[in-house]
């Protein structure tokens, strides 16, 4: 039966690790949603109906948390008692920030030159960087268990997310 003390991974019968089988996650989520779906409790007492609704919400939140690499990592670190300090830690490695500056400058230049292909090239470069950071994150959490380092990578990925968004928006604007 459902147990409120289970962590999100246990809820979906998955090992508590950063590496995750997306197909299994999706399957477990659908199965769980079927079990706790409020429709199945139409004839139940109001207390049971309320409980099923709370579980459906909980399962959905857990699923959203595990689905994205950044929120999955943040959650895993939280289970270890590690705060990712995304709101407070402004001291990123200098070379990383320099690279951020260069990318933002390149976006500005491509945007004013109306150069969609330059933007697409940048996007590819940043997607590659994000993929490589995600595999570092997996190693830091699952293998090295170096959680402070993992928190640093989560913070880096937030910047990469932002740059990806910005390029996608710039491309959309130019395509219109």
């Amino acid at each position: 039966m459902l147990d409120i003390h289970q962590n999100h991974f246990e809820l979906f019968d998955l090992p508590t690790s950063f590496a995750i089988d997306r197909t299994l996650l999706d399957q477990s989520y659908r199965k769980l949603q079927g079990e706790v779906h409020p429709d199945r409790f139409a004839a139940a007492t109001s207390a049971e109906r309320l409980r099923s609704m709370q579980w459906a919400t909980h399962a959905n939140e857990a699923y959203q948390t595990l689905k994205s690499p950044v929120s999955r990592a943040r959650y895993l670190l939280q289970l270890q008692g590690i705060d990712t300090q995304e709101e407070t830690n402004t001291a990123m490695p200098a070379d990383f920030l320099m690279q951020q500056m260069e990318w933002r400058e390149a976006i500005d230049e491509a945007r004013s030159a109306l150069d969609i292909s330059a933007l697409e090239k940048l996007l590819l470069e940043i997607n590659r960087e994000a993929t490589s950071q995600e595999s570092e994150l997996r190693a830091a959490i699952d293998e090295q268990r170096d959680y402070p380092r993992a928190a640093g990578i989560v913070r880096k990925l937030r910047f990469l997310d932002k740059v990806q968004d910005e390029i996608e928006r710039a491309i959309e604007a130019l395509e219109e």
């Binding site: 300090q85 402004t90 990123m92 951020q100 500056m101 989560v154 997310d161 932002k162």
Partner: peptide
């Protein structure tokens, strides 16, 4: 000084130039 805010992705570079008297004579940012 280069700093960044992970939550919003903002990046800030601040530079100061100090004279021999220890007083900041110029400051620039990006």
């Amino acid at each position: 000084g280069m700093v960044g805010a992970p939550a919003c992705g903002d990046v800030m570079k601040l530079q100061i130039r100090v004279g021999d008297d220890g007083v900041i004579e110029d400051a620039k940012f990006k």
